[in-house]
Simulated assay, not measured.
Amino acid sequence: MSKRSALVAALLLVLGLLVARPAEAAAVRIMPLGDSITGSPGCWRALLWNKLQNGGFTGIDMVGTLPAQGCGVPYDGDNEGHGGYLVTNVADQNQLPAWLSATRPDIVMMHFGTNDVWSNKPTATILAAYGKLVDQMRASNPTMKILVAQIIPMNPGTCPECAQRAVALNNAIPGWAASKTTAASPIVVVDQWTGFSTSTDTYDGVHPNDSGNQKMADKWYPALSALLGGAQPSPSPNTSPSTSPSPSPTPSPSPSPGSAGCTATYTITNQWGGGFQGEVTVKNTGAAPTRGWTVTWTFAGGQQVTQAWGGTATQSGAKVTVKNESWNGSLGAGASVTFGFIASWNGSNPAPVPACAAA
């Protein structure tokens, strides 16, 4: 064979291998969005990144126009955490579309509004800014998945009123999210308030220290991993940041006996006048992977599910049935997945005990 023929044969072989190679799945692009709590340096992102990697979520790409700022461990630190920024200014000045265009996220995780609270922006104004940013996210990606945090507590020495203003904002977020969420682009509320102490988890009454960063990472992880469609630990029960008693106390989750190799754990993560947000964690208790799962429960207080994500929900009378989505029905032995929902309640909100059936 001549040298030319050998070269042609080698090139054809290489081309054949390239054509035959299966396409790799695109990484899920995740944008952390917020102010200095997110970006300066926002070391909860480093902890979250490594927690996701250790949990098997390796097909992800953190995106943003800002780079990592240290934190002492290797991690994907791209972010959109702008120190000193107000969410109301970002909305008014239309800054987000350029960031979205540059990074093309599939998921946005937003902890934003601390500086607005500090600046005494009305809660309604902050929520209007949230709404505008969500509209811009959906204009960039109609199926954008959005995690919105109830912000961590704040108690700066120069703003004694800030603590209660943060409570007012956090109490309003679930209702706003319920009115804004859609099936194609769900908004999931992540409670970063509960269990967070400004005296032990911040270094200045506002910004998280090492223990605060760990708590934030631990709160983001279940919500984010549920969107990514894989296993995660059961979330801790969360309560409303309201300083007055809730209409009905949030019960601690109780695992049901389940059936056919799975259990379901029901948790009320937030409650407000006339509505609440819940989560159910499905765990495979069998030795073989599941092909799918179905969770059922019966409400005893006239509650009605109005929105759901991470599962397809139907309700007939008081009975609710939730089936897995196409992407989260397969659970390995011992693995779990969480779906969420928004529901209404009137008078009382007792927690049902769900049953789980696995295929």
Rank of each mutant, 00 (worst) to 15 (best):
M1N: 12
S5I: 11
V19Q: 08
A25Y: 08
R29D: 10
I30R: 07
I30E: 10
M31D: 00
S36E: 15
S36K: 14
P41K: 01
W44F: 15
R45F: 10
A46N: 02
W49T: 06
K51V: 03
F57T: 02
T58F: 05
D61H: 15
G64T: 04
C71T: 00
Y85D: 14
T88C: 03
A91G: 06
A91K: 06
P105A: 01
I107Y: 09
T114H: 13
W118H: 11
T123I: 04
A124F: 02
L127Y: 03
A129Y: 00
A129N: 02
Y130K: 03
L133R: 10
A149D: 12
I151P: 15
P156E: 00
E161P: 15
C162P: 04
Q164R: 08
N170A: 07
N171V: 13
G175R: 10
G175F: 13
T182W: 00
V189M: 05
D191W: 06
F196A: 10
S197L: 09
D210A: 13
N213H: 13
W220Y: 10
P222W: 00
P249A: 05
T263D: 06
T269F: 09
W272M: 07
E279V: 05
R291K: 14
R291T: 14
W293Y: 03
T296Y: 06
T298P: 08
F299R: 03
T306E: 10
Q315W: 03
G317W: 05
A318S: 15
A318Q: 14
S326A: 15
W327M: 11
G329D: 00
S344W: 00
N349E: 04
